[in-house]
Design a protein around this nucleic acid. Sequence first.
DNA 1: TTGAAAGCGATACCAC
DNA 2: GTGGTATCGCTTTCAA
Lengths: 349, 349
Amino acid sequence: MAITINQIAEICGVSRGTVDRALHNKGNVRPAVAEQIKKVAAEYGYTPNRAGMALSRAAHPIRLGIVLHSVQNAFVQALLEVCRREAQQLSVFSTDVIFRLSRSLDPVEQVRMVDDLVENHKIDGLAIMPLNNYLVENRLNDLAEKRKLPIITFNTDLPDSRRLCYVGQDSAAAGRTAAALMRLATGGRGLVSPIVGPSENHSAYTNRLRGFQTELCSQPSDIQYLVTRVANDDDDECTYHATLQLLRTHPDIAGIYAITSGYEGACRALIETGLAGKVHLILHDEIPSNLQYVRDGVIDFVLGQDAEVQGTLPMQLLSDLIHMHRSPEKELYHTDIRILFRYNIDNLL
Amino acid sequence: MAITINQIAEICGVSRGTVDRALHNKGNVRPAVAEQIKKVAAEYGYTPNRAGMALSRAAHPIRLGIVLHSVQNAFVQALLEVCRREAQQLSVFSTDVIFRLSRSLDPVEQVRMVDDLVENHKIDGLAIMPLNNYLVENRLNDLAEKRKLPIITFNTDLPDSRRLCYVGQDSAAAGRTAAALMRLATGGRGLVSPIVGPSENHSAYTNRLRGFQTELCSQPSDIQYLVTRVANDDDDECTYHATLQLLRTHPDIAGIYAITSGYEGACRALIETGLAGKVHLILHDEIPSNLQYVRDGVIDFVLGQDAEVQGTLPMQLLSDLIHMHRSPEKELYHTDIRILFRYNIDNLL
DNA sequence: TTGAAAGCGATACCAC
DNA sequence: GTGGTATCGCTTTCAA
């Protein structure tokens, strides 16, 4: 076992209280004594016992806010699940977590949620999946500056805001990865089409498209490129019809890249037209339905992102910051870009 | 905050001690009272506070043993690193971890290490990366049966032994994954050669080869198959020479599958012969040198395994079992088979 | 500026 | 069979 605050107190011939004040720079310790205490602590490699801290804090809980949008999306639901589990874990550390969820992509609603958490629930930290909109950005900047509220973005970033850090995928890199896999799957020939929605306020989606596009065009090849637009983000039905239409007008198409996990309709369209397995298909997110389509030979590749890390790290970082005054070490915590295909999906935990 | 043992005691009009005995079935509680206590606990969704448990156990520490071989291998070193970090974490739960490391693949030495941990250090649980040898297997079976020692295998399994469970990759599936990627990279044409050592006592390696072989032969294709044997496992120099030899005799070779991360010599051979990027190359393990070869265009794909889970889960499972009498839920905890190539390696945590 | 003491939740042990 | 009490490491409060 590591050295304890009691042992340090004994070594230095002072009381526990004094050691605590010295190590936390709370003042009311004679400088010379504080000096010696810190020296001894460093010498013996003192690290506070987390169980002890947790227990003693039970009387003074802190509150964290979590804001998510697009909760109808299957991946976001998985992410929410992980967040809930982590919230449970954190309750040991006297950290209460308050969730605010929306289906829409309405920035006004998101700002209202944030305000509610800050004004009515007095949160000490915020983890948010932000919409890419100036209303949201301005509000977050305000809170960070004027209220000194620590804010962490996750899943989707708002890079120019005053958030502490971002936990999530590098969306542009994910798009480039999709392009490289598409090249492999098609042998670098034929017509390839990404299916995208308006992606308004949703920077993850626009970044994926940009990355895909950039990478495909970066090397000379026999690939033609055509963007298929659908009316809504994460809309299964739209995607179904758009894909049917695409397959009708371009029956010789080589590959489709459905840019969100809400675009499962593309799978149905391929199956119904008998083109499943012939047209190469790449989708995002490790959700059960996608994996089943992979097993059935409809989807070539699924690009997964690490829901585990995205759902736990933001809260842990906030908790560490507030409880132990330890700031995040990096600005960007980029999570895995997982490549899943039929050979490596049935061996997971 | 969740309900505590104190509150249950108050509700039931008994003392904390009684509640504790009732919930842990320690006897010495009147059946009717025990019944009521359990009912109340269930009703209020009681879960023991981990911080409290950890703290109260400080006086009664437990000991875990960890046995690793092939520690000169870069991946095993990364794994060891993770284990050390987890051991640090567990010290909060009064769990001391004792490591025994070997470079060799000698089963006699491994058995000796296990014996030392059991006899001289009185370990309460064992996590081992076992050699595939009857001496090891018999010894583990003995300890499991006669001494009731909980044993978990990790990284490499010993499926017929009496271990509680296994945490690690499905090696055969990893081999199949390598074969599928090789098919993609080569376009399904040409000569493909896995490079393997004797793999004596090392079932992960033999299973990878078996999976690779099975998958390549499972579909009709224009791929020819030739196994290249080297004298030692994880030997860079051997591999270098064997690869040079292979490239000389088969200058038109399409792909090489180096079955362990110790076979970096294959990369050097390809670079020196000017064949890097022309002959497709797949290696195992997410180690820095491999990733650099990917960036340099020498390696097409790296198959990674999850060192994080492999290094933490076995100890957590043992700790949970010994402290809380909670047995592992599964027999096989298969970790990720990660596919890494130049597009998704520079965006990691 | 400092020390002493209470309390967080769970466990172990000793009286009764 | 049961209740009381000490203990783990840390924080906080109050008194000196």
